[in-house]
């Protein structure tokens, strides 16, 4: 009848390490979707309370950033604005989601301290709240994508290059549907990031600043405002320095969602890396949940 009901049979609680209790927490958390769904929405509405256009500010600020940077960087790289703007816009949107999961994921439990100490609820609810909030932000930002797509459709519906002598991108096709599983895979990773980083950050309060510092670096190191063509043109194919991007998991995550949305060249290696990270990440997060779930309320 109720969403977070404890299953039949006596529940013997002891702050030990238990797979069963960790799995139960995650199951109950998923079942309480009305709760985290509502809380996530509330977070968005809260941020723009009393402002006239409300959450549309998310859309608007993304639009301004993408348009401005799109203009500047397309000049810098000698790219055509009509193909570069969609590239940069989608890159920014996906990055925004990943960044949100990393930064706010680290704060998942710390920022919900009051609720954790006063209301018994599955802890995974707070991780889901974080990921859901980021998803709603992404949905708002996707409006910018559709506007850009409408403007640039003529340049994307056939094969094109992002810069002179760059890789030939095949252009938009039905493969755009791959964006759906791609987003789901990225959101799935948001889940383990919130749980694992959330737990570690609750115990060690130095972690959020560390994540903060690294994400700045990662933004510039990941092909978001610059296309990989720039690197290839400079280094020539087969140079070991390509590892700078190949070893960056964020590049692969961005690429699985960006390529279908702008008709870019797709590669199974991106999916393989993203899938591998998902498995490893969830394994670590589940181990952390097993070992430290019951300690979180003591640590916050």
């Amino acid at each position: 009848m109720s969403a977070v009901d404890i299953p039949p049979g006596p529940v013997v609680a002891h702050a030990g390490r238990s797979w069963a209790r960790a799995a139960q927490d995650i199951r109950a958390g998923l079942a309480a979707r009305e709760l985290w769904g509502h809380l996530g929405w509330q977070d968005i509405k809260q941020r723009y309370r009393r402002s006239v256009i409300g959450p549309l500010w998310i859309t608007l600020s993304m639009g301004v950033t993408a348009a401005g940077l799109g203009f500047i960087y397309s000049q810098l790289f000698g790219s055509d604005m009509s193909t570069f703007l969609p590239y940069l816009t989608v890159g920014f949107i996906v990055w925004g989601f990943i960044l949100g999961c990393l930064l706010e994921g680290s704060e998942t439990f710390v920022s919900n301290e009051g609720l954790i100490k006063h209301l018994p609820a599955p802890l995974s609810v707070y991780a889901l709240r974080t990921v859901w909030r980021q998803t709603l932000m992404l949905v708002h930002n996707m409006l910018v994508y559709f506007v850009v797509l409408a403007i640039s459709f003529g340049a994307l519906d056939h094969a094109y290059t992002l810069s002179e002598k760059g890789i030939v991108q095949p252009g938009l096709s039905w493969s755009v549907l791959l964006a759906i599983p791609a987003f789901m895979l990225i959101a799935l990773n948001g889940g383990w990031v919130s749980l694992l980083f959330g737990i570690i950050s609750t115990r060690y309060r130095d972690i959020p600043p560390v994540v903060n510092a690294l994400t700045n670096l990662l933004f510039y190191a990941t092909p978001i405002v610059w296309p990989t063509d720039v690197l290839t043109a400079k280094l020539g194919p087969g140079d070991w320095k390509h590892l700078i991007i190949e070893l960056n998991p964020l590049y692969h995550f961005i690429e699985i969602l960006r390529a279908p949305l702008i008709g870019g060249q797709q590669s199974w290696t991106h999916w393989a890396v993203a899938g591998g990270v998902t498995v490893v990440g969830w394994t670590l997060a589940l181990v952390a949940m097993r070992n430290y779930r019951s300690r979180i309320s003591y640590w916050v």
Partner: peptide, 16 residues
């Protein structure tokens, strides 16, 4: 209420 689980010993709670 189940917010703190005992660090030693057990707590068995049946009910909403």
């Amino acid at each position: 209420s189940g917010i703190y689980e005992p660090t030693r010993g057990t707590a068995e709670i049946n009910g909403k």
